[in-house]
Simulated scan of single mutants.
Amino acid sequence: MTGQEHAPVSGTSGFPSGRALSARPDAGVVMVAVTDLLAADSPRTGGDDLAHVRNMAESATELPPIIVHRATMRVIDGMHRLRAVIMRGGDRIAARFFDGSAEEAFVVAVHQNAVHGLPLSNADRTAAAGRILRSHPQWSDRRIAEIAGLSDKTVGAIRRRLPVNVSGQRIGRDGRARPVSARAGRLRAGELLARRPDAPLREVAAQAGIALSTARDVRRRLSAGEGPIPPKRPRVARPRTPVAGPGPAGHEATPVSVPVQTGPGDVLPALRELARDPALRATVEGRAVLRLLSLHTQTLDHWERLIVRLPPHSRTAVARLARHCARTWDAVARRLEGHRAAERP
């Protein structure tokens, strides 16, 4: 060590990305003896690139300061630069110190290596993201993705493979805690508003980790005597549309499947045509009609296979409901035919 006081790098506890390190490149730069430094706890699983070190050593360009973890004297960022200085025959190197835990130092190392210098390999970034997930499981996928230079979907996949602790909240890139699920946030907001109905919505949103608009919706629902969580909308299953398969050479693709099992010969073409109609497929009502038609345009043979397996005590009730369905479909048909007749000139 040089014996002089070393100024710390800005951003220590809870340091998320190392972004503050590049705010003032000359802040707290000191000269440190190379013999006082230890090898980095590097995210580079393959070690240093000697060709890259040699190119840096032979360059006349002044090298930027390295970053050193004060508590351990390990290099956080700049092992290639340190080896280049040693290769040049130097005994001192410009450095800035980082004050924080070893886990925070590794986060800074990953981010610094991801944003400049020799890029990390995909395997290195993936391994680094896994390590950060173990030490900071409360951080969001997006936050870790920004640090490691990965997509948030990739980080999410890594999280699912690891036995990491799962909490009800995640801390995002902006430092704010948010619930993993909107349901948990709404329930929390409902509890807060039940105790303090006149609480400021911004305060409720902050404590529950939800958006202001969500907090406003929770208050509206509670005022209307409803629960904080809106009911799930019923899902309308989309009918399977015809799938185009490769046709003979020189011809257009032909349908290879239909949205129903099988039906009368004169019914299937009409059903196929309806299933192709974008005007029907683009609306909830149209998709519902297609689904109902798909369920009911079955052959009598198909129904016969179902009927013979019915328990005897249920057949009367099934027959009554079948007649009801028949009357309903007949009424629908008459209504549609009436509309069609009224549209004729």
Results as ranks from 00 to 15, higher is better:
115 V>L: 00
328 T>W: 13
28 G>H: 02
56 M>T: 03
212 L>S: 02
159 R>V: 08
284 V>T: 06
291 R>G: 05
133 L>C: 13
143 R>M: 13
93 I>G: 01
192 L>I: 11
64 P>W: 06
22 S>T: 02
13 S>R: 08
40 A>N: 00
181 S>N: 04
204 V>T: 14
269 P>N: 06
179 P>T: 10
292 L>G: 11
16 P>D: 05
240 R>P: 01
7 A>T: 13
90 G>C: 12
132 I>Y: 04
292 L>D: 11
220 R>P: 06
139 W>F: 15
285 E>P: 01
284 V>Q: 13
232 K>W: 04
76 I>A: 02
33 A>E: 07
186 R>A: 08
77 D>Q: 03
48 D>E: 15
48 D>L: 13
173 R>P: 05
57 A>W: 04
112 Q>D: 07
89 G>F: 07
277 D>G: 07
45 T>F: 07
105 A>H: 05
113 N>L: 06
339 H>Y: 10
206 A>T: 10
14 G>F: 10
81 R>V: 08
300 L>G: 02
341 A>I: 12
85 V>G: 00
306 L>K: 05
166 V>K: 09
241 T>M: 12
275 A>F: 09
29 V>D: 09
252 E>I: 06
218 V>E: 04
53 V>H: 00
205 A>H: 02
228 P>T: 08
11 G>F: 10
224 A>V: 04
262 T>D: 13
247 G>N: 13
345 P>L: 02
152 D>N: 15
152 D>P: 15
252 E>L: 15
82 L>I: 00
18 G>Q: 01
282 A>K: 02
111 H>Q: 07
163 P>R: 07
22 S>P: 03
241 T>Y: 09
91 D>K: 05
225 G>K: 09
256 V>R: 14
291 R>V: 01
86 I>Q: 12
34 V>I: 12
304 E>H: 02
112 Q>F: 03
87 M>R: 14
184 A>T: 13
102 A>Y: 03
269 P>F: 05
333 A>V: 13
185 G>F: 04
178 R>A: 10
